[in-house]
Design a binder for these strands. Sequence first.
DNA 1: TATCCAGGTTGTAATGATTACAAATTAGAG
DNA 2: CTCTAATTTGTAATCATTACAACCTGGATA
Lengths: 142, 142
Amino acid sequence: MIIEQKLVAALRGHKMKITPQRRFIFQALERGMYRHPTAEDIFRDVRQTLPDISLTTVYNTLRELVGMGLLRQVDLGEGMTRFDPNTDLHHHLLCMRCGRLEDIYIRFPCIALPADQTQGFTVTNHQVIFEGICPDCQIQPA
Amino acid sequence: MIIEQKLVAALRGHKMKITPQRRFIFQALERGMYRHPTAEDIFRDVRQTLPDISLTTVYNTLRELVGMGLLRQVDLGEGMTRFDPNTDLHHHLLCMRCGRLEDIYIRFPCIALPADQTQGFTVTNHQVIFEGICPDCQIQPA
DNA sequence: TATCCAGGTTGTAATGATTACAAATTAGAG
DNA sequence: CTCTAATTTGTAATCATTACAACCTGGATA
Ligand SMILES: [Mn+2]
Ligand SMILES: [Mn+2]
Ligand SMILES: [Zn+2]
Ligand SMILES: [Zn+2]
C-alpha cells in the first residue's frame, strides 16, 4: 500500500483519476521490478486480477506513467518496447540470445563528452548498454 | 569503385550474386555515411537511379549486409530501425527532438564490468548513447 | 449522499514498419 | 549460349502500437 502512494500522489498532482486499472498496472510493474516487462507482459499479469482490462488501457497507462516520470522506457531492437519501473540512474546488461535484461548500478565517471565533441548538442544524459550472453543461454546448444 | 571492392569481396566470400540492386544499395549507404538512414531512406535514394527497385529488396539486402558484418543496426526507440555503414567501434549522440544521430569517436576506458557484477553473463561489447538536443532544435520554439 | 460530467475504459479499426510468399527474372558457372 | 539456383518483385500477412467513438465512472459539488 505504501508503494502506491507514489502513484496516488502523481495522479493527484496531474489531476488524473485514480482508477483500479491504473492501480493494478502500477502494482504489476512494481511486482515485476527489475524484469523490464513489455506492455503485453503487464497485460497478462493484470488480467489475472482484472480479467476485463483492455490492452489499450495498458498502453495508455504505460504512456502516462512514462510522461509523469514514474516509468522509464527501454528500447532495444526487439520489436517491442520494454518498461522499467526503476527510475534510478542505472545502466543495462542485455542477453543477445534471450533478451534477459539486468540492471547495472555502476557509475562510470569517465563517460563525458568534452565540449569540443558535442557538435553543438546540449547533452542531458547518457546510457550504457552492455551486450553479452546470460548464464542460462551459455549452456544452451546454439 | 574502390569502395565497392568491400561489397564485391564480401558477396564473393559468401557465394552470393553481385546484382545492380546490391551495388546501388551499398553505394547509397556509403554516400549517406554518418547519416544513419532507415530502410525507407535508402529506398528513396536508390530509386533515383533504379526506379523499379522494390522495398523488399532493400530490406533483404540490408539484412544480408548486417549479417555479413558490413553494416551495423542501430535501434533507438523511434519505431524504425536505422542502419550504420560505419562499422568502426564508436558511440552515438542522439537528438531527442528530431532524431539526428551523430557518431562519437571517444574511447571511454573506465567502462568495464567488474567480474562480480556481470551476473554470470559473458559480456562481448557495450555501447553508449548520449541524449540531448541538437543545435538546430535548440533554436526551434518547443 | 445523490447528481453530474470530464476524464477514463473498452472493443475495434487503422496504422506503419517489417516479413512471408510465390511467380517472374537474372547472374554467372559450365 | 544454356541452364539453374539465387535474386528480385509485387502483394499479402504479421505484429506492435495508436486512433476512435461509444460507454462508463471517479470524485467534485451541493
Ligand atoms: Mn533497468
Ligand atoms: Mn554511427
Ligand atoms: Zn539469455
Ligand atoms: Zn534535433
